[in-house]
Structures are given as C-alpha cells and as structure tokens.
C-alpha cells in the first residue's frame, strides 16, 4: 500500500473511520452462536422471512427500474421550470427517516388515506398485504437508482446521442441503441443498490405494512422480533443480512467501481453503430 502521498494524520483518521464501520460487524460475528447457526437461520420463520424479503426486494427493484429509468432520463436530458426542486424532492426518501416514509405512505394509500377510498372502490386493498411491503421498499430504494443513473447520464454527455440523431435515428432508437447502453453499468449498479436498500427496509414496512409471517414479516422485521425472545436467532439472521449486503456491494463494485467516470468510448461506439 502506498500512502506516502497523503499526510499521516489523514491516513490515521481514515483508518479510524474504517474501523468504526467494520468493528461493529466483527463484534456481531463474534456473538454468533455457531453450533446453532444453521438451525437458527433455517427455522420456519427465518426461511419464510428470507424468502419474503428476496421476493419483495426483487419486485421493488423491478418497480424502481421501471419508473426510475424514465425519471433519471427526464431529470438528466430535459429542462423545465422547477427541475432542481423536483430533483431534491425525488431524493427526499434517501434522507427521510424511513418511519416517516411509512407514515406518509399510510396517509396516502392507507384505508383512510388520500387515495385509500378510491383504491377501496376499485377493490384494491393494500393494508397489511405484501403489496404494502413492496411499496415501502420501492419508496426508499427509488432514489438510489435515480441518483446513480442520472449522474451517469450527465457524465457521458449527449455527444453520441446528437450524432445518432443527425444520422437519422429516431428518439426511441437513440434511447435504446445509444443512451441506455452507455449507462448500462450505472443502471445495473443502481439497481443492485436499490435491491440492497429494499432488503434492509424496516421502518416504513413496520409502520405501513405490519408484520405477519409469510405475508409482511421481512427479514429485518424478523430480526427485530426475534431479539425479544431469542437474541441468538436475531444475531444469526443479522449475519445473514450482512453477508447478503456484502455480496451486493461487491457486485455493485464489480460492475462499475463506484464513482468512476465514463465507460471507455470505443466499446460504446461499437454498440451504437
């Protein structure tokens, strides 16, 4: 490791910061009751929670891609009055305490919420359903996708798109053949981060969706509940979540080192042709 370029105290502080993040995880791993680890994480309730978490997080990620890509495109490629405000609002769930998000969702889609009675008339009942879990997760995960994709769109610029358009490509063709391939790595890493955020969602789910095994009790809610009676089970399940999170971050890094710039243009030119 070559750290000679930096003042020593900067490196020292960085190490302290790194330990601050890593040490609690190590401390938790040390508390795991290893002989009972497998039975603990494969119990009925744990399996139900893990499966539900994976199912809902994947659905939420798909939802985020479906609406997040258009949102990022609109924010990066168009200009309209109040765009800066819209951008800040879109990113709000990122900084909002999730429980506040849950309350907001409740007052929108709940039975007595803003849209609740209309949805009720349509025969849609979101309260205490798996749909409510997916909505909570999508709500908190969406900004991750929009943020990472919009940044990528801005950094690749519009040169290739302009060239494509002058060569007669229509808007859809430009989007499909040039813009999206250019930002594909960012899209994938954004989706992976959204998935990770959805997997960890707790506050909004607790407030908005409730907690019932197999229907709304996701892994974080199961951890929270198990802690009441069986802290060993809670720690074991926490470790499962940590492992999943590490894997997810690893994938996101592999796809595109976070914060790195534009992908190499030649490859992109090939695709655009």
């Amino acid at each position: 490791m070559n750290t000679a370029v930096l003042p020593r105290w900067v490196v020292a502080l960085a190490v302290v910061g790194g330990l601050f993040v890593v040490l609690p995880l190590v401390a938790m791993a040390l508390r795991v009751d290893w002989p009972r680890f497998v039975p603990l994480v494969t119990s009925d309730s744990a399996q139900a929670a893990l499966l539900l978490s994976l199912r809902t997080s994947l659905t939420a990620t798909a939802l985020c891609v479906l609406v997040g890509v258009p949102m990022a495109l609109v924010l990066a490629r168009t200009s309209f009055r109040g765009q800066r405000l819209v951008r800040s609002l879109v990113l709000l769930p990122l900084v909002l305490p999730p429980v506040v998000g849950g309350i907001a969702l409740l007052y929108t889609f709940g039975r007595r919420g803003l849209l609740g009675s209309s949805l009720d008339a349509l025969g849609v009942d979101i309260a205490f359903s798996t749909t409510a879990v997916v909505m909570s997760q999508a709500f908190v995960a969406l900004p991750f996708l929009v943020l990472s994709l919009e940044g990528a769109l801005r950094s690749v610029g519009t040169r290739y798109e302009a060239v494509g358009a002058t060569l007669g490509a229509g808007r859809w063709t430009v989007l499909r053949r040039i813009t999206l391939p250019l930002v594909l790595p960012a899209l994938v890493s954004g989706a992976v981060l959204s998935f990770a955020r959805a997997l960890g969602e707790f506050g909004a789910t607790l407030t908005f969706a409730g907690s019932l095994q197999g229907t709304t009790r996701t892994l974080p809610l199961e951890v929270y509940l198990q802690r009441e009676t069986d802290p060993d089970a809670a720690v074991a399940l926490s470790l499962v979540l940590v492992v999943v999170a590490v894997a997810v971050v690893g994938v996101a890094h592999r796809v595109r080192p976070l914060g790195s710039g534009t992908p190499a243009p030649p490859r992109v030119q090939n695709r655009a042709r």
């Binding site: 309260a127 607790l206 407030t207 409730g210 907690s211 019932l212 009790r217 509940l225 009441e228």
Partner: peptide, 11 residues
C-alpha cells in the same frame, strides 16, 4: 386470525 402481529403494543 390477525392480519398483523406487531412487535410492540404501540404499533
């Protein structure tokens, strides 16, 4: 047959 089993009475 509850629709939800919460972790606290406040919930």
């Amino acid at each position: 047959m509850p629709v939800s089993e919460e972790s606290s009475v406040t919930d």
